[in-house]
């Protein structure tokens, strides 16, 4: 990957406002459709911006702990680019989502372009390119769970989410927990089976910083499925 050549790096708007208007519309029209990390299908490029080349570390403030973690990941692999996913995961932990700034920080440390990272962040389901919430509740609604009424659980969870909850409640494809169906993956903890009526409790727990449905999570002390042991 290359840095931009000499003297490049000004935006069209800076140098030729009228032309910018002609090509991408006036600043007002632009503001109406401000692109996100993955500017949508309908979004023009933002001519206000300079091209997103590899940011120089001297221009980017990276939290030291994050920088250290990324560098540790880079050291683990024969090719540093393999560190991209773990590094994005780390950046998401720090920033709450893969924000443009988060990507810039990873890019500066890894010496890759931000686009290289948004290309990845938008491909993988667990990386969020929008601020959807620091906690997550993934309700599995794939075939096996679907057969055990997962849809109802999903609706219940969505309904239980309240204004201001910092939680990403979403349906998710098979989580590899069909034996626990219907189930949810709450911040990495697999909980199931869950009755839709328990949904409010799960979100309340997240809200109040408690462990949702203690003892009901895979890996919890003495966890068992209701029908295990009986025969």
């Amino acid at each position: 990957m290359t840095d931009s050549p000499r003297g490049n790096g000004r935006s069209l708007r800076e140098s030729d406002p009228l032309l910018a208007d002609r090509i991408v519309g006036t600043p007002e029209q632009q503001a109406a459709a401000r692109p996100a990390v993955a500017a949508g299908w309908d979004e023009p490029a933002d001519i206000e911006k300079a091209p997103a080349t590899i940011p120089d570390l001297s221009e980017v403030e990276v939290p030291p702990a994050l920088k250290a973690e990324i560098e540790a990941h880079m050291a683990k692999y024969p090719n540093v680019r393999s560190a991209a996913l773990p590094s994005l995961e780390a950046a998401q932990r720090v920033h709450g989502w893969c924000s443009p700034e988060a990507l810039r920080q990873v890019a500066a440390v890894m010496r890759v372009t931000p686009a290289y990272l948004s290309m990845l962040a938008t491909f993988y389901d667990m990386l969020n390119t929008e601020p959807v919430g620091r906690h997550y509740v993934y309700v599995c609604t794939s075939v096996s769970c679907h057969l055990r009424n997962a849809q109802a659980l999903a609706e219940a969870m969505k309904a239980a989410k309240q204004e201001g909850d910092d939680v990403n409640v979403r349906e998710f494809e098979c989580l590899g927990a069909c034996d626990m169906a219907p189930m949810a993956n709450v911040d990495g903890r697999f909980i199931g089976p869950i009755d839709p009526s328990e949904a409010p409790e799960v979100l309340a727990a997240l809200r109040e910083g408690r462990t949702p449905l203690p003892g009901r999570g895979l890996g919890d002390e003495g966890f068992r499925l209701p029908w295990e042991g009986e025969s």
Binding site: M1, T2, S4, N8, S11, L12, R34, P35, A36, V37, A38, A39, W41, E43, P44, A45, D46, I47, K49, A50, P51, A52, T53, P100, L103, V112, T113, P114, A115, Y116, L117, S118, M119, T122, F123
Partner: peptide, 25 residues
């Protein structure tokens, strides 16, 4: 220059740049 990439996945995939920056190279 690695500025132009595929974003999103499956039938949502589209050609774009980071954060709506223009592809200038």
């Amino acid at each position: 220059d690695y500025q132009l990439v595929f974003l999103e996945r499956a039938d949502h995939t589209f050609v774009g740049t980071h954060d709506g920056h223009p592809y200038v190279a």
